[in-house]
């Protein structure tokens, strides 16, 4: 039997990572602080999820300076966008099969 969840991507199991990718899909770039406000989580928690997504080539990091403060922004990579779309398709299929 075909595994019904084979197309669901492990990376997006986490609600936080799913949320990060959703925000990156509709914005050219999103800063660390904006993500923090959107997701209501701590710096450390967010950083570890971002690291995970970066290691999986789903997002790229841009560091720049605003005055003396570092401003870190994130944007989705082509690989990340594709993986996210496949994940959405898989979710859709699962829900349709249940109906």
């Amino acid at each position: 039997m075909k595994n019904p969840i084979e197309n669901l991507n492990k990376i997006f199991d986490s609600r936080i990572r799913l949320g990060i990718m959703s925000a990156l899909m509709v914005n050219d770039e999103v800063s660390f602080n904006e993500l923090k406000e959107l997701l209501h989580i701590t710096d450390g928690n967010l950083a570890s999820h971002l690291k995970n997504l970066e290691e999986n080539n789903c997002l790229k990091v841009q560091k720049s300076f605003v005055g003396r403060k570092t401003n870190t922004t994130y944007s989705a990579t082509k690989v990340g966008e594709k993986a996210f779309k496949l994940h959405l398709d898989a979710l859709e299929k699962m829900i349709r099969s249940i109906e």
């Binding site: 949320g19 959703s22 925000a23 509709v26 914005n27 999103v30 904006e34 959107l38 699962m94 829900i95």
Partner: peptide, 19 residues
């Protein structure tokens, strides 16, 4: 199924909220 539905809702709300 509820888990997947809520995942989709999460995605939608995050896309809206962030843009």
């Amino acid at each position: 199924p509820h888990q997947h539905l809520s995942a989709l809702q999460d995605i939608r709300s995050m896309m809206e909220k962030s843009s």
